Simulated scan of single mutants.
Amino acid sequence: MPVDEQPPIPSVWVRPRRQREQPALSRERIVSEAVQLLDTLGIDALSMRSLGTRLGAGATSLYRHVANKDELIELVVDEVCGEMRAADASGPVDWRIAVGERAHSLRSMVLRHPWVALVLGQVGLPYLGPNMTRMSEGMLTLFEAAGFPLPEADQAMKTVIAYVIGMATSEAAYLSLLTRSGRTEQDLAESLRPVAESAAIDHPRLHESQAAQHGKDPRKIREDNFEYGLERVLDGLQARLDGSAVGSDQRP
C-alpha cells in the first residue's frame, strides 16, 4: 500500500493541531475540565457529551479541538504526567536515590488520579506526549549516568515504570473502593479483618502473616510494601552494574 494511502495513526500526537482555536474553548481548557471531571466522578462519567455540558458547549465544539474520546484520554494522561518530578542529572547524583524519587512521584500521581490506572491500557501512544517524553529523557539520563548503555538504560527505565504502575494500579483500585465505602482506611481494614481471618483459617502461613499486620496503619503497610519492592528492583539493577559486564552481552 502506498505511503499516502496508509490509514492514519490513531493518536493525538501525530495529528497536526488546529492553528486557530476559539479563545473560550481551547484544548487546554478542555483537558483541564476533563481532569477535574475524572477526579470527581471517575472514568465512567467521561464522555464528549458530559464534558461538553460541563464546559457549556456542545460535543461538536469539542471535536474541533479533540477528534474523539481516545485522543482526549491521551491528553489527560499526559496532563497529569506533568505533575511528576523531572529527573535532574545535571550534576553528580546517587542514581538509586534519584530513580527512587521519580518512582515515588509516579506512584503518587497515580494515587491522586486513580482513573489513570484504568485508562493506561486505552492510551495508544502515551510516550509521545510532551510530559511523558520529558520524564523519559530524564530517567534515561540518570540510568546512563549510572553506567548503563543507552539501549539497556531504556530497558531499566521500563522495568522500574512497570513495577510502579503494577503496584499503583492495585492501590488505586483499593483506594477507589475505599472512597465508595465512605470509610477511613483503618476502619475498612478492621471491618475486613474477621473475613480475612476466616478465609485464611486453613492456611497457617497466610494466617500468621495477616496476624502480624494486625493493629498496624494500613497506609504505612502500603508504603512499606511499595518501598520494599522498589528497593529489590533497584538491587537487581545495581547488581547488574556491579557485575561489570553491562553492555557486553547485549543480544542483537
Score class of each variant (00 low, 15 high):
residue 162 A to F: 04
residue 30 I to R: 07
residue 79 E to H: 12
residue 237 L to V: 05
residue 193 R to S: 08
residue 187 D to A: 13
residue 1 M to R: 07
residue 138 G to F: 04
residue 167 M to T: 10
residue 152 E to Y: 03
residue 31 V to L: 01
residue 105 S to W: 02
residue 140 L to I: 14
residue 95 W to Y: 03
residue 124 G to W: 02
residue 4 D to G: 09
residue 49 R to P: 06
residue 215 G to L: 10
residue 28 E to I: 10
residue 216 K to P: 09
residue 49 R to V: 15
residue 198 S to W: 12
residue 252 P to A: 13
residue 41 L to T: 05
residue 137 E to D: 15
residue 225 N to Q: 06
residue 150 L to G: 08
residue 215 G to S: 10
residue 211 A to V: 15
residue 224 D to K: 00
residue 76 V to E: 03
residue 59 A to F: 00
residue 215 G to F: 09
residue 16 P to S: 12
residue 97 I to D: 14
residue 62 L to F: 12
residue 135 M to I: 15
residue 162 A to K: 06
residue 247 G to F: 12
residue 183 R to K: 12
residue 57 A to S: 15
residue 115 W to Q: 03
residue 136 S to I: 13
residue 194 P to R: 03
residue 100 G to C: 05
residue 152 E to H: 07
residue 110 V to H: 00
residue 51 L to H: 09
residue 80 V to F: 02
residue 173 A to R: 15
residue 135 M to Y: 11
residue 197 E to I: 00
residue 131 N to A: 15
residue 169 T to R: 04
residue 47 S to V: 14
residue 105 S to Q: 03
residue 22 Q to C: 01
residue 58 G to W: 14
residue 38 L to F: 05
residue 182 G to N: 12
residue 104 H to P: 05
residue 115 W to T: 06
residue 43 I to F: 00
residue 184 T to W: 06
residue 150 L to S: 15
residue 41 L to K: 10
residue 9 I to F: 14
residue 10 P to I: 07
residue 211 A to W: 12
residue 76 V to Q: 03
residue 142 L to V: 11
residue 97 I to T: 14
residue 46 L to I: 00
residue 249 D to M: 00
residue 190 E to S: 07
residue 75 L to M: 12
residue 94 D to W: 05
residue 205 R to H: 13
residue 48 M to R: 06
residue 179 T to M: 10
residue 156 A to M: 09
residue 112 R to W: 00
residue 6 Q to E: 02
residue 130 P to F: 01
residue 183 R to N: 07
residue 111 L to M: 05
residue 48 M to G: 08
residue 151 P to E: 10
residue 154 D to M: 10
residue 115 W to E: 08
residue 239 A to R: 03
residue 230 L to K: 02
residue 175 L to D: 02
residue 188 L to T: 07
residue 142 L to H: 01
residue 86 A to N: 07
residue 53 T to N: 08
residue 246 V to Y: 01
residue 58 G to K: 14
residue 15 R to E: 11
residue 28 E to T: 15
residue 129 G to T: 02
residue 177 L to T: 10
residue 107 R to S: 04
residue 172 A to P: 11
residue 196 A to Q: 09
residue 71 E to Y: 09
residue 117 A to E: 06
